[in-house]
Design a protein around this nucleic acid. Sequence first.
DNA 1: CTCTCATATACCCCGCTGGCTATATGTCGA
DNA 2: TCGACATATAGCCAGCGGGGTATATGAGAG
Lengths: 107, 107
Amino acid sequence: MSTAHDALFRTLADPTRRALFERLCREGETTVGALTAQAGVSQPVVSKHLGVLKQAGLVRGRHEGRQTHYSAQLGALAPLIDWTSQMAGFWESRFDDLEDLLKRMGQ
Amino acid sequence: MSTAHDALFRTLADPTRRALFERLCREGETTVGALTAQAGVSQPVVSKHLGVLKQAGLVRGRHEGRQTHYSAQLGALAPLIDWTSQMAGFWESRFDDLEDLLKRMGQ
DNA sequence: CTCTCATATACCCCGCTGGCTATATGTCGA
DNA sequence: TCGACATATAGCCAGCGGGGTATATGAGAG
């Protein structure tokens, strides 16, 4: 059911991982080494996080020689946007119901 | 400082908790008992999750007699929306940079 | 005042996951 | 072919957090 949302939220819940994704959004394609340099955690940890981001579809890896360039896949955020606007939608419709109710009460 | 985003993502990362929030968005004010009935977990667990949601500002509790009515606070999703559009914005601007580059190369 | 019901809190358990180090894999330069 | 470098994988450990049960708190009913 909420599998897609689940993966997204769970993946983005970790600060380190989200920071990596943010950097990739801001700076575009970046190597693991460059990411590691400012991540505040060890290189293997960065690789692991990138793996998780990749599995969630949030990130894409391109091999070039002995280094890997990662880039953000913004489209993967779509389910998150959908979910948010869906929640807002429920809210709105309930508000409309309330308006209807008040209207009917007032007449 | 992604503190606000952090709390939101972390809070919404758990499926059970997110389901509770979704129900509150769909159905409006609901009692703990009603929520527990369909949550698939015990009442204390529901209370705990509601506590977390409350701390994140996603939910509000209103005492009425011996029961508590919870309702979603949709405004709390704002940072999430901001974050998402910010990421999209970075993406866009990088795309613009690329366009600029291509333009300069082409002239 | 007491009993019951609705919710919250306390406490424990256990699995998941993020961090680490060590090492494997793979690529470039000499 | 060999060594250095870039990244990935393996294996381990500790802490966090979600689940449970037991119980406290508090409000209505009788």
